[in-house]
Amino acid sequence: MTARTAHLDQAVARALSGLSAAAKKGLGDPALAELVVIRASQLNHCAFCLDMHLGIARQHGVPERQLDLLAAWEEAGDVFDERERAALALTEAVTVLTDGFVPDEVYDRAARHFDGTALAHLIGLVVAINNWNRVMVGRRIPPGGYTP
């Protein structure tokens, strides 16, 4: 597979990077942030983002077992704690929007584990990675080329 275009407007890239950085900083949990962006990237089939964020997750100490089982987190038993499960459920709900909205039960579950500020940052992070996924998938950017 070859990229359709390597061009990305730098103002757009800076805006997306700023949103990502602000959301991650506000969430205050780099390991959880990487689980969230990896899960969204799995759902969106973004090889570039998966390649990049799997490496970043390892740098933040995310256990290999979590990375191995992330695609099946709901069936992974105690590999993920309740806070992580709530964040992953919200990630999927915001990413997929199956019924056109985030179900109340999913939002309420996340709200039990994150205060209002952290929840806003979590949602912002999901929105940010979904934007990045679409930018990369839309241009067919292959994995590789990212240097931490």
Results as ranks from 00 to 15, higher is better:
residue 90 L to R: 08
residue 95 T to P: 01
residue 58 R to T: 10
residue 53 H to I: 12
residue 73 W to N: 06
residue 96 V to Y: 06
residue 68 D to G: 07
residue 69 L to K: 10
residue 49 C to E: 04
residue 87 A to K: 04
residue 70 L to V: 04
residue 95 T to L: 00
residue 94 V to F: 05
residue 57 A to P: 09
residue 65 R to V: 12
residue 65 R to A: 13
residue 84 E to V: 00
residue 54 L to D: 04
residue 85 R to E: 01
residue 85 R to D: 02
residue 83 R to Y: 14
residue 77 G to K: 01
residue 65 R to G: 08
residue 67 L to P: 03
residue 90 L to M: 15
residue 80 F to Q: 03
residue 79 V to S: 08
residue 94 V to G: 05
residue 66 Q to I: 08
residue 57 A to F: 03
residue 84 E to I: 01
residue 63 P to R: 14
residue 90 L to E: 10
residue 68 D to L: 15
residue 76 A to P: 03
residue 90 L to Q: 14
residue 60 H to K: 14
residue 94 V to H: 06
residue 58 R to M: 08
residue 78 D to Q: 09
residue 70 L to S: 02
residue 70 L to M: 07
residue 94 V to C: 11
residue 56 I to D: 11
residue 77 G to D: 01
residue 68 D to K: 12
residue 66 Q to L: 04
residue 95 T to S: 13
residue 72 A to R: 10
residue 83 R to Q: 15
residue 79 V to C: 12
residue 60 H to C: 09
residue 53 H to M: 02
residue 52 M to K: 06
residue 49 C to L: 07
residue 80 F to S: 06
residue 49 C to T: 02
residue 65 R to H: 10
residue 63 P to N: 09
residue 53 H to C: 08
residue 81 D to K: 06
residue 90 L to H: 12
residue 84 E to Y: 00
residue 71 A to G: 13
residue 93 A to R: 05
residue 68 D to E: 14
residue 82 E to W: 03
residue 74 E to G: 08
residue 77 G to Q: 04
residue 83 R to W: 10
residue 62 V to A: 01
residue 92 E to N: 05
residue 74 E to Q: 10
residue 67 L to W: 01
residue 84 E to Q: 13
residue 75 E to P: 11
residue 63 P to C: 09
residue 55 G to W: 15
residue 62 V to T: 00
residue 81 D to Y: 05
residue 82 E to H: 12
residue 80 F to I: 00
residue 67 L to I: 15
residue 55 G to I: 12
residue 51 D to Q: 12
residue 75 E to F: 14
residue 61 G to F: 15
residue 49 C to V: 06
residue 85 R to G: 04
residue 49 C to I: 07
residue 81 D to V: 12
residue 52 M to Q: 09
residue 90 L to A: 13
residue 58 R to F: 09
residue 64 E to P: 02
residue 74 E to N: 14
residue 89 A to K: 06
residue 84 E to K: 00
residue 93 A to N: 12
residue 55 G to D: 09
residue 84 E to A: 00
residue 88 L to F: 05
residue 92 E to V: 10
residue 51 D to V: 04
residue 93 A to C: 08
residue 56 I to A: 09
residue 66 Q to N: 07
residue 61 G to T: 06
residue 61 G to K: 10
residue 51 D to H: 12
residue 63 P to V: 10
residue 96 V to H: 04
